[in-house]
Structure formats: structure tokens, C-alpha cells
Design a protein around this nucleic acid. Structure first.
Lengths: 344, 344
DNA sequence: ACTCTTCACTGGACCGGTTAAGGGAGTGCG
DNA sequence: CGCACTCCCTTAACCGGTCCAGTGAAGAGT
């Protein structure tokens, strides 16, 4: 029951066992020149026998690079779990980190001030070698913070939001336009969009693009609602959109994520409307969820896993080569499934 | 474009500005006795002016406690995002970590060997102060590893799987029994279970409990299928269960998570079967998804967020007080919704 | 045979904190 | 007045690595 005392083995022990100095062990483990093959082997052997691996903490303190990447996600206090988008994104990030033997330092924060504090503490305390910044909003304080700290980051967001930071982004405006044009091409003249959180930059971009496209196509009706991305909010929004008289309500709805689209599907069923005959539904983000409903959900699909991987790769090149710039990734493409059709 | 040089401010700068020694600053920041109020204030003022916060790296190296918690999740190579359960679990863990100003070091690994290696490296390198171990299987190598390393951990799993480790667990056997009894009470005599990954310990426990209960109730039919927890697998399993002749197929299906239950719902619809009239469906884990489908999904529900929080709290007491033992949390309770009813 | 390189390795300062031991000033007391 | 006892603060060793200047021996060049 008593805690086993941990016999901490250090570089000194390895050096002693291999009959060399600490410096030599350090050289060997960092694959630096200046050691004979024989010595190198002896050192690795000794290390293996003692079960030693270098202390990242000490290594970090001594000034070499830190191989931990930070990610702070801003969510309200009692979160009901992250959306599928995040999990896929994180898993994509991880897949690249793993190749570099890095880990992800994850933290949920409640607001932007807290995030700024956390990032600053992480960086100052040399906890992380760089960070991934997500959910940009207008006049985001993290732009100034990053420049002040000189911390390597990758900003996930449109360059108009991320200032001079290295950014990786999807072209949300074009995607929204494509979505609306597709629905219009099917014959829809009254289209609604159930959007995400209004304070998020990419939501604003999508909202503007929707308005513009609706205007350009001279739609007979165009509605937009802001939500908090939750299924419940998506359900409420859908319910209020669909309670209007048949001649006045939208015949197609675009959702800003897939959870809300699933909720919309169920609201339609509950109200006795058939999808896609009575109303077409188009989701965003296309996680496996979209293929599991009945009818299956048409979606603007997007390789979120690959996106996360791209972000991570970009971060590594920022860290090692100070690379900057703006990196667009492929625009989400429309994947028609069973939830969209011409209006009756 | 050139990287901004980071002007790293250290404890020495703060000491100089406050006109004291490094040691005094350290005392102040650790709230230890031996300093006058006046000096303490002067030190905090200086720190604030310089924007200094102690380097966790250095602090860790100097032997004090590490406030990062590890979590390695074992998934096949190219993951399509984690299940909702994980997201809620992680968010519950985070909520407690945040109170302690700790962060979560997250890593996706491909197999058990890799996980053991990662945990060992983390602990040896003083990257983490303790770890959360999940997804136990029979003869799990992490039990021996933990004892060998003397690392504080909390094992998420039934004590029969986690050996002498401090464990936090839900009573899966009782929950399965309750689920089956409930369906039997509704009048179902042919019941199937779409289970999770067969190599996981809790899956085995559920499988055994299902068999036992089916036997005890002398059901006319009892099927069990193993899957990988994915929606696709859930859909396949459901399809094959429901293709039998009406008199031979199950009238109720229990799923091991909610994603598979959603998939099952859609398969039923696709096959022209009504839920719950033709077949009842019962989910597990009860994330928001279950309330968003139509019909809504009955589920064995379980406060996963709270569970994560409990696990984190337990880990902190293991770290600080070496607490051990086995901590059951409340058994999942049945939440009947629209997907279960008496068979026709 | 002598100096000049090159190679392989050592010694020790250093990273930024913590902590135990020590020291000087101020007070209480015989 | 001298001594002990606090109270506050300083000093310096240490944590486990990295890194650079330096050393000693072998080989090359003349």
C-alpha cells in the first residue's frame, strides 16, 4: 500500500555505467557528432540496462526545444463535451504530433482572458514550444499577445481575423456560396441558415457570404439565426423556422455543423415534415454522424482530420524555420446525400 | 518577418527589482512563511510590473510537484474522431484540472506497447505528476508498469481488471442486467446486444452479464455481436440482426454506445421497420445525441462529465495523499424515451 | 623530430527555480 | 551588559540535463 519509492536514474548514472562523462551521454542521445561508434553503443547499452530516458524537463530548462504543443479551447463553464469537429481536429493534430514524438497540452478555458493568461503562462514557463490558436473573433487579443511574446503559433482562421500570424484556413465564404447556389439550382427560393456562435469570426464570414449570395440570386426568402452550436439550439432554431405557413417558410436549411443538422432532421420528423420532400437539410463538417441518419445528410464536407494534420505540420515548420504566411486548405465540397432534393 | 527575440524575464530580474534575493521571491510565490508583509507586497508588485510568472519547468526540475496529468488513449491509426463519451469524459476531467490550474497532456497511441512507452517516458521525464489510465483489458500490462514506476494513477475500470491500482468504475454488470430486465418487463423475449470492442475489459463484463441475465430470464432469443464502437459497425450489426424472419429476429436491441444506437435507428428506418413498434432500441452513454433523434433514444444514462470529474479528483488525492482503493460511481440509470416500447 | 590538425572525450558553467542552513538585527530577560 | 531567542532574509547547493571551451592522443605534413 505504501507508495513505491521511485529510484530516479539520471544521466550521471548512465555516464558512470558506460564509463564516460555526462557530456558524452548527452551527445549520444542527441545524435550529435563527436563520438566513436563503440562509445555510442556502450552508452545506449548502459541506458537501456538502467531504463533511462532523458528528462524532458531538464532538457527544456537547459535551453533546447520543447516538444509540447498547446491548445486552449474556449467553452462555457460546464461543457457538454466538445463537438465532433473538435475531436476530429484534435485527432488529426495528434497524428502528426505522434510522428514527432510530441504531445498535446490541452486546456478548456472559459473566456478569452483566461486563454490569453494560459497561453502566456505556458509559453513563459516553457511548457510549450508553440501553440495552436482556434476560434478567432474580430479584434482578437491573441494576435497582439503572440507578437508580444514572440511565440510560434498557427492561427486557425481567415487571414482577415488572424492579423500577421501564420494561418491555416478554409474558405468559408466560397463554401457558403456554393451551398446556397446548389440549393438554388435545385429550385429552392426560400433558404435559411442556422449559424454558429455570432461572436466567432468564421460565423461572421459565413453570415456575410450568405447574405451576399442570397442577394445575388434574388431569393424570395433568406433567414439567418445565430446559435451556440448545440443540438438543442439547432432544434429550437429549426422549430421556429418551420412553424410559419407553408408558403412562407424555408424549403431548405443550411446548418453550421452536423450536430445541429441532426437535430433539425428530428424536428422536421416531429413536425410531420418529410425530408427532403418538404424541406431540404444541408449539414456542415460531415462527421460520421451524417452517414448514420435516415435520410442520410447532405453536407459540405471537409477533411477535418487532414486539416488538423496540416495545422500541426505548419506549426512544426513555424517552430523550426519561422515560416509564416497564410495557408488555405481545400474548400469544403458539397456531398449530396438523401436530405436535399428539389422542393415540391 | 524575423522572429521576435523573446525577452525572458526570470526570478533574478524580479529579485533585483524588488531589492531582495531569489530565495525571497521563491518564498513569496509559494506562500511560505518567513517574509514580512511589506517585502511580500514589494515582490508581488515587481513581478506584476515585469510580467513574470515562475517557470514550471524549473520548478519541476527543482523537485516540487508536477501539475500536469497524462492521458493516453489507444486508437487505431487513422482515427475518425473519438466517441462522444470521450469528449464528455475529457471535459469533465478538465473541469477539475482547471480548478487546480493543471493541464492535460493528451496523446493518441496506436497500441498498448506504445502507451506503456509513452507513460514511462512521461513519468521518467517528469512530464506528468500522475496519469489517468483508461480502456483496461484482461492482464493489462499497465498494472505492472504502474507498480514498477511507482507512478500515481487512477485506473478507469472494474477492480477485477485494474489489479491493486486505485480505480474508479461504473457497475457495468448491474447496468446491463437492468437494461435487459427492463426490456423483458416490457414483454420482449428476443433481445440482442451490439457490444463494443471485444478485447476491452468492460465489454467482456457486459457480455458476461448479458448472458447471465438472458439465462436467468429464460429469454427465447439472445444475440451478442462485437464491434469496434463505430457507427458503421453498429449499422452493419443492426442490419444483420434485423434481416431474419420477423418471428426469429430480436424485438429489442441494446447498444454499447450512442453512436451505434443512432446508426441502428437509421438502419431500422431504411429497412422499413418502425421504432419502437417493430423494434425497440436502447442506447448507452446518453450524450446529447440521444435527445436529438426521432424518435428520441432511450438510454442507460450516466453522468460522464461528472465521472471524468470524479476521476480527476481521485487522481489529485492519489498524488497528494497516496490514497488508494476502489471507488464505484453511481450505476447508469435507465432513461426511457421514445425508442423503447412493448413489442407488438 | 617537430609542429599542426583532427578526433574523441572531459570538465564545468549554466538554465530558473527550491530549499536547507546560516547570519544579522532586534527584543526579552536575568 | 550579555545571552538566548525570534524574525527576516541571504547564501549556496542542488535538480538533470545542454553546450562550449579545453585537453590529450593519434595521425599528417614537412
Amino acid at each position: 500500500m505504501t507508495a513505491t519509492p521511485t529510484p530516479r536514474v539520471t544521466i550521471k548514472d548512465v555516464a558512470a555505467r558506460a564509463g564516460v562523462s555526462k557530456g558524452a551521454v548527452s551527445l549520444a542521445f542527441n545524435h550529435k557528432p563527436g563520438l566513436s561508434e563503440a562509445t555510442r553503443d556502450r552508452i545506449f547499452l548502459a541506458a537501456r540496462e538502467l531504463g533511462w530516458s532523458p528528462s524532458l524537463t531538464a532538457r527544456t530548462l537547459a535551453g533546447s526545444r520543447v516538444d509540447v504543443v498547446g491548445l486552449a479551447v474556449c467553452r462555457p463553464a460546464r461543457v457538454l463535451g466538445l463537438e465532433p469537429w473538435y475531436m476530429e481536429f484534435v485527432s488529426g493534430v495528434q497524428s502528426v504530433l505522434t510522428e514527432h514524438s510530441s504531445s498535446l497540452l490541452l486546456r478548456l478555458v472559459r473566456n478569452m482572458d483566461e486563454e490569453v493568461g494560459v497561453q502566456e503562462t505556458w509559453w513563459r514557463g516553457r511548457q510549450i514550444g508553440g501553440s495552436i490558436l482556434v476560434d478567432f473573433r474580430a479584434d482578437d487579443p491573441r494576435v497582439a499577445m503572440t507578437e508580444r511574446l514572440g511565440m510560434p503559433v498557427v492561427a486557425v482562421g481567415h487571414p482577415s481575423l488572424t492579423g500577421g500570424l501564420t494561418s491555416v484556413w478554409t474558405d468559408d465564404a466560397t463554401a457558403v456560396t456554393e451551398a446556397v447556389r446548389y440549393l438554388a439550382a435545385l429550385g429552392h427560393r426560400r433558404i435559411a441558415r442556422v449559424g454558429g456562435a455570432a461572436d466567432l469570426g468564421h460565423t461572421a464570414i459565413r453570415t456575410a457570404a450568405f447574405d451576399e449570395t442570397a442577394g445575388a440570386l434574388a431569393l424570395a426568402g433568406a433567414w439567418q439565426v445565430a446559435t451556440d452550436f448545440s443540438g438543442d439550439a439547432g432544434a429550437r432554431a429549426t422549430r421556429s423556422l418551420l412553424t410559419a405557413a407553408p408558403a412562407d417558410r424555408p424549403t431548405a436549411i443550411v446548418y453550421d455543423n452536423d450536430i445541429m443538422a441532426v437535430a433539425g432532421l428530428s424536428v422536421a420528423a416531429e413536425m410531420g415534415l418529410r425530408v427532403p420532400e418538404d424541406v431540404s437539410l444541408l449539414a456542415w463538417d460531415d462527421s460520421q454522424l451524417c452517414r448514420l441518419t435516415h435520410p442520410t445528410l447532405s453536407a459540405m464536407s471537409h477533411d477535418v482530420h487532414g486539416f488538423g494534420a496540416d495545422v500541426a505540420r505548419t506549426l512544426f515548420s513555424v517552430i523550426s524555420e519561422g515560416e509564416g504566411g497564410s495557408h488555405p486548405v481545400p474548400t469544403p465540397v458539397l456531398t449530396p446525400r438523401g436530405s436535399t432534393a428539389p422542393p415540391r
